[in-house]
Design a binder for these strands. Sequence first.
DNA 1: CCATCTATTAACCGCTTCGGTCAACACCAT
DNA 2: ATGGTGTTGACCGAAGCGGTTAATAGATGG
Lengths: 214, 214
Amino acid sequence: MNRKFFSLPQEKQQLILNAGFHVFSRNSYRKSPMSEIADAAGISKSLLFHYFNNKKELYLFLWNTCAKITIEEMERSGAYDETDLFGSMESGMDAKLRLMRKYPDIGTFAVRAFYEKDPEVSADVRESMGQYIAVHARRKLQKLDPDDFIPGIDLEMMYREMYWASEGCLWEYIQRGEMNVDAMEDDFGKLIDFWKSVYLRRPQEEVKNERKDI
Amino acid sequence: MNRKFFSLPQEKQQLILNAGFHVFSRNSYRKSPMSEIADAAGISKSLLFHYFNNKKELYLFLWNTCAKITIEEMERSGAYDETDLFGSMESGMDAKLRLMRKYPDIGTFAVRAFYEKDPEVSADVRESMGQYIAVHARRKLQKLDPDDFIPGIDLEMMYREMYWASEGCLWEYIQRGEMNVDAMEDDFGKLIDFWKSVYLRRPQEEVKNERKDI
DNA sequence: CCATCTATTAACCGCTTCGGTCAACACCAT
DNA sequence: ATGGTGTTGACCGAAGCGGTTAATAGATGG
């Protein structure tokens, strides 16, 4: 298997992981050549096959590693512990950005692997996805207190809207190719501030508008 | 060149265009085989080469067609003529969705072609992009009247936020693979309604909160 | 200085796939 | 029959694929 891979210095491991994430995130499984991954990692194809017996093994290893470190990072950030919506959103973003700084293509890779249809790997991906989903699902829709927000707002729609906007912002960076995490962090920060300024009930309204709109 | 292609019945032309958009939107130029496109169009590879002399010619033809029909549709929808923000947004969406119903993968194709790096085509893409951009740039940031919106809102941020959210919503559909335009239309409609309900100044505030927050 | 071990690679293998060609077939109107 | 038109399967040389292997270079240790 890949015992030899683990005895590599951490930095070299990360280089290979990122090369894999990069290539597999831009092409389908079948159209992601091992040679291209080796090149991206700056090693020979033979050496890559020395670490991983075959393409499938590398792919599934990347998938499991992706799940593992994402979960770790998420839990470490305490994104699930926060009680306030924007607070948990901020620490969630923080975790995602920290992850992305280390593994720039991990997000795109995860999405692509999720939807991969090639029968050589899709079954295994689907199977080992169980736990990954299980943890992510803990991002339960938070119990939101309607009184915190401007009166009459559709909270579920607000939630979807915010999700889509961050996804769209991310997507823009991905398409551009250059993964400038600092600029992303700045944009996300502005987004959250904007949401706060718009969706949160403004103080002077607290008493005035009470119940008037229901 | 492709004189024979144009004498095809419209419906058959569209089938081939969509096959091209589909394959080229999911793989890079080099990794999009002509055979796959022919299969997707339900014709033989030989026939595809009968219509287009080579792969590059087909690709650039798709790119130019994509630009042409997008511009046409946008102008026909009158998205640029509207004066009201949400109105122009709605008709713009309408055009986009109408286009997407006819050519489901045209949007993804356009983005991918825009960022394509293969030297065999990138130069030509970049070159013929001039006019495409020129027209799209006419989507000038509309003169918005701050009095129409809730007081104190950051209008530019609002605009970016809305753009990202629609992009993110679209992205979700794309990733899922099935391009359900009806469901998309429904989602976009809800989004716009939500924005109206949240960003537009609410009637009872018009007098009450005047200038209090600046 | 030699023997041994480990990390690393170039060269190679058999097979598939690629872009593109070509000769032939089917169909239709002369 | 004749000739034009639309369409295809079979084919070509070249390139790319996943994977193997034999050999190289360098560190270690006696």
